[in-house]
Amino acid sequence: MSVATQDTAVSTGRVTRTFIYLLLILFALFYLMPLFVMVANSLKPLPEITGGNMMALPQDWTIEPWLQAWSSAQIGVEPTGLKPYFLNSVLMVVPAVAISTVLGALNGYVLTKWRFRGDSILFGLMLFSCFIPFQIVLIPMAMILGKLGLAGSIPGLVLVHVVYGVGFTTLYYRNYYAAFPTELVRAAMIDGAGFFRIFWRIMLPVSGPITVVSVIWQFTNIWNDFLFGASFGGQSQPMTVALNNLVQSSTGVKEYNVHFAGAILAALPTLLVYIVAGRYFVRGLMAGSVKG
């Protein structure tokens, strides 16, 4: 799905091929197994899990665990289910993705088509910032969010994710625009279009593929983030933190089926995005940060 299939000149014998297929299928099972376990066991009543085989399909199908995980499971101290946290995640992800993508596109456009002295040093600094361990910024970030009155709020999380996501989106757009002929920008300048007009009329119409990549990348990263959510979420914890609280709660019986249902609920948005648009995602990853 990422790369066009191309003939390899390598030819293999029948025995080798059988072995290869066997191995490939084995690995496919390895990758699928946890998903299967989660789905199958989220549809079982609890006794069937504790007394039965995790690899077995449910005998007594039920969606009760899903309903519980969604709306009534105990998260922390409140029996709210994951619903409010899911909503938090959505409210956090949408603006964070939108803002960081727009900024990344503009930055990439400037860094490739309006170059100035020292721009590659700036880009290098930006690139490095993508890879820092976030532990190094946790303490001052907590202080600043507190000072700004954004601690424990969704706007606070949006700010954090935009700040630490814009390096990646810039990287994507920069690499993409770098391959876009500069002569077109010059032609448009002579035609009388200015900075924003060129961006709007010439660059944006051809930015579809990289925008898909940037949006998906940011969406998965921000949706899946735990560290920032746990550190700065406060009253507005995102889905990942809530799921962890659900699973780690030490009171009462461990309701595995509810945990699994919750885990799938937390994974569902990114999985869906991946299934729908995964091919662009991978292609972009290849073309972007990790170009071989």
Partner: peptide, 10 residues
């Protein structure tokens, strides 16, 4: 200006 790559807006 006429460019080497023609620079037509795709």
């Amino acid at each position: 200006m006429v460019f080497q790559s023609y620079a037509l807006y795709p």
